[in-house]
């Protein structure tokens, strides 16, 4: 008997159903059920919007995610640009060095950051949180941007020079727009995990600053499954929306850039 190629897909299908589709479905079901009666309700969502503490944590998390993403972008773009200039990065070792932290577990890196702050006698708190976030997610921003800059046909740059563009005009009118797919990938790769992270916040702020991920975790841990699910669903929607916006930005030249 000949085994069709599609047969090989079944184990993956089972995996996807068990570990992706089913949990998502369960989150959705829990989110719309009343904790006591089990009846359909929008009460969990209503509770979120009427609990200023949770709502504020949510808005604060988004703010932290946006700040982290912007900081990463501001730091990563010039870095990626310099790396993409071949003479500085002939052996690609420099890129490797930038990507290397990704090989180390995020918790270990964060604990190391805590130790570093202690050593330098710097206070843990909001500043440490931002530093930790940027430090953790910077490679995810550098790599896609570097990739799109590196793959860019140098003849576009020559064409722009040829048509009279000064170096800064070449950058603003050609290099930057053509690298936008990479920028969007980077923004997504940083924004999505930062909005849901909680371990970094707990460790780097000594639990002083609470992020939305922590709120969800606390609720689930304390047995408030339905409310916790509703919060998780809200976060999923936000992440889903961002990736839609990102896709929109990416459609022009979807084949360029790319994650890894």
């Amino acid at each position: 008997m000949r085994v069709k190629r599609s047969t090989w897909a079944y184990p993956y299908l089972v995996f996807l159903i068990l570990f992706v589709a089913l949990p998502l479905l369960m989150i959705a079901v829990y989110a719309f059920r009343d904790a006591q009666t089990g009846a359909f309700t929008l009460g969990n969502f209503a509770r979120f919007f009427s609990t200023p503490q949770d709502l504020n944590t949510f808005l604060y998390s988004i703010q932290v995610a946006i700040v982290t993403t912007l900081l990463c972008l501001v730091i990563a773009y010039p870095a990626a640009w310099i790396l993409s200039k071949s003479d500085f990065n002939r052996s690609k070792i420099t890129v490797m060095l930038f990507i290397l932290p990704m090989w180390i577990n995020m918790l270990i890196r964060t604990l190391a950051t805590v130790a570093l702050f202690d050593f330098l006698r710097l206070p843990l708190g909001e500043g440490a949180l931002t530093f930790g976030m940027v430090y953790n997610f910077l490679p995810f921003m550098i790599y896609p941007i570097y990739n799109s800059l590196e793959k860019m046909d140098s003849s576009y740059i020559e064409a722009a020079q040829d048509l009279g563009a000064t170096p800064s005009q070449v950058f603003l009118k050609v290099t930057l727009p053509l690298s936008m797919p990479g920028v969007w990938s980077g923004v997504l790769m940083v924004f999505m995990p930062t909005i849901s992270t909680f371990a970094i916040a707990e460790l780097l702020t000594l639990n002083k600053v609470k992020l939305f991920g922590t709120t969800i975790q606390e609720n689930i841990n304390n047995g408030f499954w339905n409310y916790g699910s509703a919060l998780a669903l809200i976060m999923l929607v936000i992440i889903g929306l961002t990736s839609l916006v990102g896709d929109e930005g990416n459609t022009r030249e979807s084949e360029k850039g790319g994650l890894i």
């Binding site: 576009y156 064409a159 030249e253």
Partner: peptide
Amino acid sequence: FQRYALFPH
């Protein structure tokens, strides 16, 4: 240019 190098954006 040989490969035209028209700006794709």
